[in-house]
Amino acid sequence: MAEQSQKRSSKAALIITPFLLLLLAGGMTVLGWSLAPTHTLEKYLNIAFMDNLKTQTETAGLQILQKEIDTADAEDTGKKTYPEGKITYPVFGEQYAQLTADAIGLNVGVFFGSNSELLALGACQTTQSAVLGTVGNVVIDAHVNTYFSDLTKLSVGDKVVLYTDYGRFTYRVAESISFDKTDRKYLGVTEGEDHLTLYTCKPELLGNSDVRVGVRCDLVAKEFYEPLQ
């Protein structure tokens, strides 16, 4: 009887032992990980593998929206305009304005946001600068080999007009500018002052330039198509 009981408990031990070992080893592993100083490793892992977009159904991507913007002057169309009005804020990749400068025959679409794909399509406004119609410095750049090839031919007093779906904004060239690519002097915020800064790379023999050239313009008129409610 005792022998049979011993045999039964021996068999039970044989079956239970691997599970017991798995439980003990697994528990020790989890305990060891939680007690060990792995903060630095976890920090690096979180930084290196932070993109969880792959686990979601939608992923972010650049949406480029090109569109026709009416550049007919308000006087020609008889459209009433207002000094203050509603602004339709653009999204990154959207063509939200048309830039014209009759003095140099410039007429180019302006995209909100700047990257190589958008610069291939037109002029680009940096997202940190003021949206047309708001107070501040509107900063727009384009490639010197394409759309802004004649930018430096603008003279003080020349008219520059930007058309959007919500209004027309007229500037006059106040000064020609030249600065190093690392200098933020003309590209930063201008508190309480309305400016337009247009710039491009200084043409070199060939290759990249470290110098930027362009014009700084002052606001002459804001004409909104819809009043503020």
Binding site: H143, N145, G207
Partner: peptide
């Protein structure tokens, strides 16, 4: 290819 606009190369 994208740099071509800037560098002229």
């Amino acid at each position: 290819t994208q740099q071509e606009n800037t560098t002229g190369i």
